[in-house]
Amino acid sequence: MGAEADPLPPSCTEDVHVLVVDDCPIDRKIVEKLLLKNGTFKVTAVDSGIKALEVLGLNEKVESPSVNEFKIDMILTDYCMPQMNGYDLLKVVKDDNCLKSIPVVLMSSENDPQRISRCLDTGAEDFILKPLHPGDIQRMRSYTRPFTPTSKTGTKRKVPLDIMPESNESERHPRLAGVTVA
């Protein structure tokens, strides 16, 4: 057929909204493409920790009520950046009551064990060495908060009492292979 289907509206998807923070435009684009290629991520990319704070609603002009108005599910930040490095961004996020539950993953091309330990001790979910690989992206998916299931085929749902049958005649018994239910 050749024509692509229109994407579902954001309200119908369960994409993980990732805030990518990296001062290098090439690295930022590579990470963005890896995340989007996976198909379960929505990406907002910025080039500094200061801009990340603006997206998160943590600049001086904005007060707490609008914190995380973009509904960021995860932050993926480079460690080495001017003005505010990834560790400083991590500290600000983890010190804020409204944002501290957001998983923060740091990335760097430098394999510095002390730096990695300090970030993990401060609350980072992970520290990934650049360049990122598809396996790193898959692992990141597990760091996000679990989604509340929406009505999908095969999921358990609570049935309101007013639509439950009053008699036991329509009661169903589970069928398990080789098991008799008394």
Rank of each mutant, 00 (worst) to 15 (best):
Gly2Glu: 09
Glu4Ala: 09
Pro7Glu: 04
Pro9Gly: 10
Ser11Tyr: 04
Cys12Trp: 07
Cys12Val: 08
Thr13Met: 04
Val16Thr: 15
Val16His: 06
Leu19Thr: 00
Leu19Phe: 01
Val21Ser: 05
Asp23Tyr: 00
Asp23Met: 04
Cys24Gly: 10
Ile26Tyr: 09
Ile26Cys: 08
Arg28Trp: 10
Lys29Gly: 08
Glu32Gly: 15
Lys33Asn: 15
Leu34Val: 08
Leu35Asp: 12
Leu35Gly: 13
Leu36Asp: 09
Leu36Gly: 08
Lys37Leu: 11
Gly39His: 10
Gly39Cys: 05
Lys42Gln: 13
Val43His: 03
Thr44Gln: 05
Ala45Asn: 03
Ala45Ile: 03
Ala45Leu: 00
Val46Gln: 08
Gly49Trp: 06
Ile50Lys: 14
Lys51Ile: 00
Ala52Leu: 05
Val55Gly: 01
Val55Asp: 01
Val55His: 01
Gly57Gln: 03
Gly57Ile: 09
Val62Gln: 14
Val62His: 05
Glu63His: 14
Ser64Gln: 14
Ser64Glu: 13
Pro65Val: 06
Pro65Cys: 03
Pro65Asn: 02
Ser66Thr: 15
Val67Thr: 15
Val67Met: 12
Asn68Met: 02
Glu69Asp: 15
Phe70Glu: 15
Phe70Tyr: 12
Thr77Pro: 02
Asp78Arg: 03
Tyr79Phe: 12
Tyr79Leu: 15
Met81Thr: 07
Met81Asp: 07
Pro82Cys: 08
Pro82Val: 00
Gln83Leu: 07
Met84Ala: 05
Met84Lys: 00
Asn85Leu: 02
Asn85Ser: 03
Asn85Cys: 02
Gly86Asp: 01
Leu89Cys: 00
Lys91Val: 12
Val92Thr: 13
Val92Cys: 03
Val92Arg: 15
Lys94Ala: 00
Asp95Pro: 03
Asp95Tyr: 02
Asp96Trp: 00
Ile102Phe: 03
Pro103Lys: 11
Pro103Arg: 10
Val105Met: 11
Met107Tyr: 01
Ser109Met: 13
Asp112Pro: 11
Asp112Gln: 10
Gln114Ser: 12
Gln114Asn: 12
Ile116Trp: 15
Cys119Val: 05
Cys119Trp: 04
Thr122Asp: 02
Thr122Tyr: 01
Thr122Phe: 04
Ala124Pro: 01
Ala124Phe: 01
Glu125Leu: 10
Glu125Thr: 14
Asp126Lys: 11
Ile128Pro: 11
Lys130Trp: 03
Pro131Phe: 03
Leu132Gly: 11
Leu132Tyr: 08
His133Trp: 09
Pro134Tyr: 02
Pro134Asp: 04
Gly135Gln: 15
Asp136Arg: 02
Ile137Cys: 09
Met140Cys: 07
Met140Lys: 10
Met140Ile: 04
Met140Gln: 06
Tyr143Ile: 11
Thr144Trp: 07
Pro146Leu: 13
Pro149Ile: 12
Lys152Ile: 00
Gly154Asn: 05
Lys156Asn: 11
Lys158Val: 13
Pro160Tyr: 12
Leu161His: 14
Asp162Asn: 12
Asp162Arg: 14
Asp162Met: 07
Ile163Asn: 12
Met164His: 15
Met164Gly: 08
Pro165Asn: 06
Glu166Gly: 11
Glu166Ala: 15
Ser167His: 14
Glu169Thr: 14
Glu169Trp: 02
Glu169Asn: 12
Glu169Gly: 10
Ser170Phe: 12
His173Ser: 13
Arg175Phe: 06
Arg175Glu: 13
Leu176Arg: 07
Leu176Gly: 03
Ala177Thr: 09
Gly178Ser: 02
Val179Ser: 03
Thr180Gln: 11
Thr180Gly: 07
Ala182Thr: 13
